[in-house]
Computed example of a mutant assay.
Amino acid sequence: MTSTASSTPIALVTGGSRGLGRNAALQIARQGIDVILTYRSRADEAQAVVAEIEGLGRRAVALPLDVARSGTFAAFAAQVREALARVWSAERFDFLVNNAGIGIHAPFAETTEAQFDELVAVHLKGPFFLTQALLPLLRDGGRIVNLSSGLARFALPGYAAYAAMKGGVEVLTRYLAKELGPRGIAVNVVAPGAIETDFGGGAVRDNAQVNAFIASQTALGRVGVPDDIGGVVASLLLPASRWINAQRIEASGGMFL
Rank of each mutant, 00 (worst) to 15 (best):
G202N: 11
V122L: 05
R86D: 15
F73T: 09
S148H: 05
P192W: 10
S89H: 15
V87C: 04
Q79W: 00
I36V: 15
N23H: 07
R81G: 13
F93G: 06
G57K: 07
A60H: 03
Q132L: 11
L151I: 01
G184C: 12
Q31Y: 00
V80T: 07
R58C: 01
L172M: 15
F73P: 06
A5P: 00
P192N: 10
I185S: 10
L63N: 11
A90H: 04
L84Q: 09
L130A: 11
D117V: 11
A109W: 01
I144T: 09
G202V: 10
P64F: 03
G221H: 11
A78W: 00
A203C: 00
G230D: 13
G101V: 08
G201Q: 06
D206K: 15
I102D: 04
G181N: 04
K125E: 09
A83Y: 07
G16K: 12
A246R: 13
E196H: 07
A161H: 01
K166S: 09
A25H: 01
T2K: 10
F76Y: 06
L180Y: 07
M165F: 04
G142P: 08
A83S: 14
A62R: 03
A78E: 15
G254K: 03
R40S: 13
A203W: 03
F116A: 14
G184D: 10
E91N: 14
G158K: 08
P107S: 13
A246I: 00
V122P: 03
V67F: 03
T8Y: 05
L65F: 05
T4F: 04
T2G: 14
N207W: 03
E179C: 04
G158Q: 08
E45C: 08
L56M: 14
T173S: 14
F256T: 12
D140C: 07
G21K: 03
A155N: 11
H105Q: 12
S89Q: 15
W88M: 05
A48P: 05
L257N: 06
D228T: 11
V97Q: 02
L220K: 07
A46H: 08
R248D: 00
L96S: 03
D44I: 12
A11E: 02
A194P: 12
